[in-house]
């Protein structure tokens, strides 16, 4: 039973991280207001939203399965308060931190119509902290964290996000950006 829980906890953690990477990259890319690889803008936004919601589902399974796994020695307080863990408190703490950020971002996203745009935007910016923290947690805490296949995946994710961020801050990022600045194309 423990083996199964542990395997489930590992697998779902990896999937959650990959879904999060997809969501982060699409979130950055869709900010440009452009369609992506033939996907219309609203589809990009939908995939962005749904991949993060799916990531939270996997995150819940990840946490619950490891809670019932005796190796991980998780307590309820470790869900919410970082760096108190019995095993690898620092790396586990990063996971807790990521969960707290994720909760804040998901809740404010679902409620954005009611809490107002400013709160939604400010909290959504925390994603730039959430993603690296989650990645560090998976490398430092995961039993596969330092295996070659996982590091290769992690590296590919970092490259993807870095490319998206580089494009985000580049001059030609915003569609119609030139027209809006009154420049000739």
């Amino acid at each position: 039973m423990n083996e199964a829980l542990w395997a489930l906890g590992r697998g779902t953690g990896v999937v959650a991280l990959l879904l999060l990477t997809v969501s982060v990259v699409l979130g950055i890319v869709t900010r440009s207001g452009r369609p992506l690889l033939g996907l219309p803008r609203f589809s990009v936004t939908l995939v962005h939203r749904n991949s993060s919601l799916l990531a939270s589902v996997f995150l819940v399974i990840h946490i619950v399965s490891l809670f019932f796994d005796s190796y991980a020695q998780l307590r309820v307080v470790d869900f919410f308060v970082p760096f108190l863990g019995a095993a690898k408190p620092f790396w586990l703490g990063l996971g807790t931190l990521a969960l707290d950020l994720m909760l804040a971002i998901i809740v404010t996203s679902l409620l954005r119509r009611w809490i107002g745009r400013r709160v939604f935007r400010v909290v959504h910016w925390f994603t730039y902290a959430l993603w690296p923290v989650a990645l560090a947690h998976s490398i430092g805490n995961g039993s596969d964290g330092t295996s070659v296949w996982f590091l290769a995946l992690a590296l590919a994710s970092v490259v993807l996000v870095a490319v998206a961020v580089a494009w985000r801050v580049s001059a030609n990022f915003i569609e119609f950006g030139n027209a809006r600045k009154g420049e000739t194309r």
Binding site: G33, F176, A179
Partner: peptide, 22 residues
């Protein structure tokens, strides 16, 4: 509020077009 990101124009092409700034 609108930032001309063009989602609504994609979803309602019969109703909405985009101006030269999107």
């Amino acid at each position: 509020l609108c930032d001309g990101r063009g989602l609504c124009t994609e979803l309602l092409p019969e109703r909405l077009a985009r101006d030269e700034w999107g």
